[in-house]
């Protein structure tokens, strides 16, 4: 005979369940990252089959899907940000000669990589989760396993490598467009001389390094978080929808949180010199 659990026990269980679920999800997420890194070693180590064709195909897919999207969104937000900044600077300081210098520093070390990655989290992250999730629910992943292929090696390794390369490439493009659109706005709406605006004097190697580190980190995080969501898909079309949603929110939030961590780290390293 078993007695029903007492109220405190049940309350603890109710509180514990989400904590356990969250801990398990975190473990699984790290598992996907480690599995992917191990997959890279397996593929590129001795006797591994380098998925060069697959990486190129994924790079093409990411670029083809996101180029126009990143260019349009970053261009418009560059114009808006410059407009707002000029509005405030002209009201508070009355001098717009510093605007271009400060803007370039921010675009290189933060806005360029972070906003590009936010857009890619939406575009690429959702795409990865939808693809892998659909394969999961239609049992194609099991079919892969049956033929002796690890799904992570086959699906995630090429996407991981391609995402890192393409995030860096699209960040450079996005930052350039954002900067250019900002300069255009400052010139057309506030009469800031383009020669004063497009002056790279403020940008130091450490700004470039910070921007690059951010781009690489985001490029790695997006496929890992999205792949994790795709692999967790269950059921049918609902499961795929759920995985896609979770991938968008998860990878967008990963970008924001990583941005915060890296920015605070850089500030701590360089202080007022940053």
């Amino acid at each position: 005979m078993s007695a029903a659990p007492s109220l405190p026990v049940r309350a603890l269980a109710a509180l514990g369940r989400p904590v356990v679920a969250a801990a398990r999800a975190t473990l699984e997420l790290w598992g996907v990252l480690i599995g992917t890194l191990a997959g890279i070693i397996r593929s590129y180590g001795k006797g591994g089959r380098r998925p060069r064709g697959a990486v190129l195909a994924q790079m093409y897919a990411i670029g083809n899907r996101s180029l126009v999207f990143v260019a349009v969104t970053l261009g418009f937000i560059g114009m808006v940000m410059m407009y707002q900044a000029c509005l405030q600077f002209s009201r508070a300081i009355g001098d717009l000669s510093q605007v271009g210098l400060q803007f370039l520093r921010l675009v290189v070390s933060d806005f360029g990589p972070t906003l590009t990655a936010m857009m890619l989290a939406t575009r690429v992250g959702a795409g990865i989760a939808a693809e892998i999730g659909s394969m999961k629910v239609t049992e194609q992943l099991d079919a892969l396993r049956m033929s002796g292929v690890l799904p992570i090696d086959y699906l995630l390794v090429p996407r991981f490598l391609a995402s890192i390369v393409m995030t860096v490439a699209l960040t450079i493009l996005g930052a350039a467009i954002m900067y250019g659109a900002g300069g255009l706005t400052a010139w057309l709406s506030f009469g800031v001389n383009p020669r004063t605006f497009f002056d790279p004097a403020m940008v130091q190697p450490r700004h470039l390094a910070l921007g690059l580190i951010k781009a690489v980190t985001y490029g790695a995080a997006i496929p890992i978080v999205s792949g994790f969501c795709g692999l967790r898909a269950r059921g049918s079309s609902e499961g795929v929808g759920w995985a896609t949603t979770a991938a968008v929110v998860g990878s967008s939030f990963a970008v924001i949180a990583l941005d915060f961590a890296l920015s605070v780290g850089a500030l701590w390293l360089f202080g007022g010199d940053l």
Binding site: R123, A126, A130, S237, G239, G241, T244, T245, V248
Partner: peptide, 13 residues
């Protein structure tokens, strides 16, 4: 199911 995933992607973009 594939169509639903694709639609979600298109919608967020």
């Amino acid at each position: 199911a594939v169509g639903v995933g694709r639609a979600v992607n298109a919608a967020v973009v």
